[in-house]
């Protein structure tokens, strides 16, 4: 249990380090695509496509992160968390936040 809690905290901490990229992309998609669609009344059924679009941007963030901060993983390795697990957690968390933001936006603006 303690190990799992530590690993979840590690994913949260790692997410904070890539959040500016991730949330920036989310904001761009939501404001440039979803907002006009809601205002024009054709946003129904487009959420899966938007989430998929969002997911396809993850490799770009991953690549930039690897290039800009190659030494960022040592702390997480010392918490027994691999790169793969970190990124899987980050992508899942980011997709949930994106979906939550999209649903909230639709509920408020529709």
């Amino acid at each position: 249990m303690t190990i799992l809690a530590t690993q979840l905290r590690a994913v949260g901490l790692f997410y904070r380090s890539v959040a500016p990229f991730m949330l920036g992309v989310s904001a761009l998609i939501l404001l440039a695509v979803l907002l006009p669609a809601i205002q024009e009344g054709w946003s129904g059924g487009m959420l899966p496509a938007l989430v998929l679009t969002k997911l396809t941007t993850a490799p770009v963030v991953w690549y930039l992160s690897e290039q800009l901060r190659p030494g960022q993983y040592w702390f997480y390795f010392n918490l027994n968390v691999s790169r793969r697990r970190l990124w899987a957690g980050v992508v899942a968390l980011d997709a949930l936040l994106f979906l939550g933001g999209a649903l909230l936006m639709r509920a408020l603006l529709s």
């Binding site: 190990i3 901490l13 380090s17 030494g71 702390f75 390795f77 027994n80």
Partner: peptide, 30 residues
């Protein structure tokens, strides 16, 4: 490194995220 309690590694470069407090780093490392 995936085996809990087996080994840790201090690299030549900075290990801890600069935004993390000393107290929190220690807590996370147990």
């Amino acid at each position: 490194f995936r085996e809990p309690g087996l080994m840790n590694y201090l690299p030549q470069e900075p290990l801890l995220p600069p935004s993390l407090s000393l107290a929190r780093s220690a807590r996370m490392l147990g």
